[in-house]
Amino acid sequence: MDPWTFWLGGALALGGGLLTVTRRNAVASVMWLIVAFVGMSTLFLGMDAGFIGVIQVLVYAGAIMVLFLFVIMLLNLTPSGLLRIDRPRWTTLGLASAAAFVALILAIVTGGELWTAGGGDEEAILQATGRDTLIEGGVLDVADQLFNAHVLPFEVASVLLLVAVVGAVALTKRKL
């Protein structure tokens, strides 16, 4: 695993995420969230998950964030109105819950097998799984799983998306 994809992607994802939740202008939040998603994509590519890394940019940074921008535009909030409603509250509660969650995960990770067995570096993984190479999540590999072992969930997901489209239209249309 190349260390630089972890540090670069991690810095982009974490920095972008922090700026997303602290900017008071929603449009600035969208832009920083796109930076965070590009960082996540770097992390996925660094773990040889090519398919997930690409759809992260295409679907998340591309489609979903454009949808967010469209809605912010459609709401037509004045800049002062946007800032007025966005004075942060419950900062202590937010910090405490976030810190508690990280502490919980740290306690689990440092107390578990992952930590004592070298944290799962490349050699440890190859030894434990008895393989010559690490898995690669290319389009062909993931498609093989999706269309053979997981066909039914795949079809259910398509129905779910259809229901979401109908629901979104039903919610926003004034007269049906």
Binding site: R87, L93, A98, D121
Partner: peptide, 27 residues
């Protein structure tokens, strides 16, 4: 040397940042 443990801790940090945003924002 980047291990799975690194990724799990980073994922918890990203999750925590999102959690902070959900609790503190009004928009």
């Amino acid at each position: 040397e980047i291990t799975t443990a690194h990724y799990v801790v980073l994922s918890s940090l990203i999750f925590a940042v999102g959690l902070f945003g959900v609790v503190t924002r009004k928009n």
